[in-house]
Simulated scan of single mutants.
Amino acid sequence: MPECSIVQKSWSQLTLEELYSVLKLRTDVFFVEQRIDEEELDNRDQEPSTEHLWIADASGAAAYLRVLLDAEATHLDALRIVGRVVVRADRRGEGLAQLLVARVMEQHGHESMLLHAQEYIAPLYAKFGFEVFGESYIEAGIPHISMYRAGR
């Protein structure tokens, strides 16, 4: 199996090469492949509390997600928001997103969390205890669902 070591850094710890690799992955998938035409760079990446997690290989970032920390809960008591989960096309099906989510659960599983998932991938998050709430909605032309996980 190809490399699967997880890297975790805050904005101030990212090197230029790491930042480029992560942003290239996000834009290749969200803009080029999925044709999402909504804002990708929302300034949340730069917040000191944002955690960037990724798995890299010789071609760069193969999988990525970020964890945000909100000052106030937007749903029940969830302050942590998992988002921007993405896997490069040539590495899909290897469980890389699961590895990243599992790391987040190891570190923050005692806290309540929220995420907004593309509907087709909701079963991945359900494996980690996330439950759907509210109605399905269209975001950037793609069906999404909101999911919540109570702290343990």
Rank of each mutant, 00 (worst) to 15 (best):
Ala63Gly: 04
Ser59Met: 04
Arg91Trp: 01
Arg66Tyr: 09
Asn43Val: 13
Gly141Lys: 10
Ala58Ile: 00
Ala89Cys: 04
Thr50Trp: 12
Thr74Met: 11
Glu39Thr: 05
Val101Asp: 12
Pro143Cys: 13
Leu69Asn: 09
Val32Ile: 15
Arg152Trp: 00
Lys24Glu: 14
Val86Ser: 06
Phe30Thr: 02
Arg149Val: 02
Gln98Pro: 01
Ile36Arg: 13
Ser12His: 13
Glu131Phe: 05
Ser146Asp: 14
Asp42Arg: 01
Leu53Ser: 04
Glu94Asn: 06
Met147Leu: 09
Pro2Tyr: 04
Leu115Lys: 02
Arg35Cys: 10
Tyr120Arg: 10
Thr15Val: 01
His110Leu: 12
Ala61Trp: 01
Glu3Pro: 00
Lys127Tyr: 02
Ile121Ala: 11
Tyr120Ala: 03
Arg35Leu: 11
Met113Lys: 00
Gly129Glu: 06
Tyr137His: 15
Asp37Leu: 11
Met105Val: 11
Leu14Arg: 00
Thr27Asp: 04
Leu115Asp: 05
Leu23Thr: 05
Val104Thr: 09
Val104Tyr: 08
Pro2Lys: 10
Glu33Arg: 06
Arg84Cys: 08
Asp70Cys: 09
Thr27Gln: 14
Glu94Lys: 03
Asp28Tyr: 06
Arg26Thr: 09
Ala56Val: 04
Leu99Pro: 00
Leu100Trp: 05
His116Asn: 06
Gln46Pro: 00
Gly141Arg: 14
Pro48Asn: 10
Thr15Asn: 03
Tyr20Cys: 01
Ile81Trp: 00
Ile142Ala: 10
Gly60Pro: 06
Arg88Val: 00
Leu114Lys: 11
Val104Asn: 05
Pro123His: 10
Glu111Gln: 09
Ala97Leu: 08
Glu51Phe: 05
Tyr20Val: 01
Arg44Tyr: 14
Ala122Glu: 04
Met113Ile: 00
Pro143Met: 10
Glu18Ile: 01
Glu39Asp: 07
Leu53Cys: 03
Arg26Met: 08
Ile121Gln: 03
Gly109Tyr: 12
Leu16Met: 05
Ile55Tyr: 07
Ile36Gly: 14
Leu69Gln: 13
Ala58Leu: 01
Ala62Ile: 00
Pro2Gln: 08
Phe133Met: 03
Leu115Asn: 02
Glu33Val: 07
Ala122Cys: 09
Met147Cys: 07
Leu96Ala: 10
Glu39Met: 08
Glu131Arg: 15
Val67Glu: 11
Arg103Asn: 11
Trp54Tyr: 13
Pro123Lys: 08
Arg103Thr: 11
Ser5Ile: 14
Tyr120Thr: 02
Ala97Asp: 09
Gln13Ala: 09
Glu139Asn: 13
Arg152Gly: 01
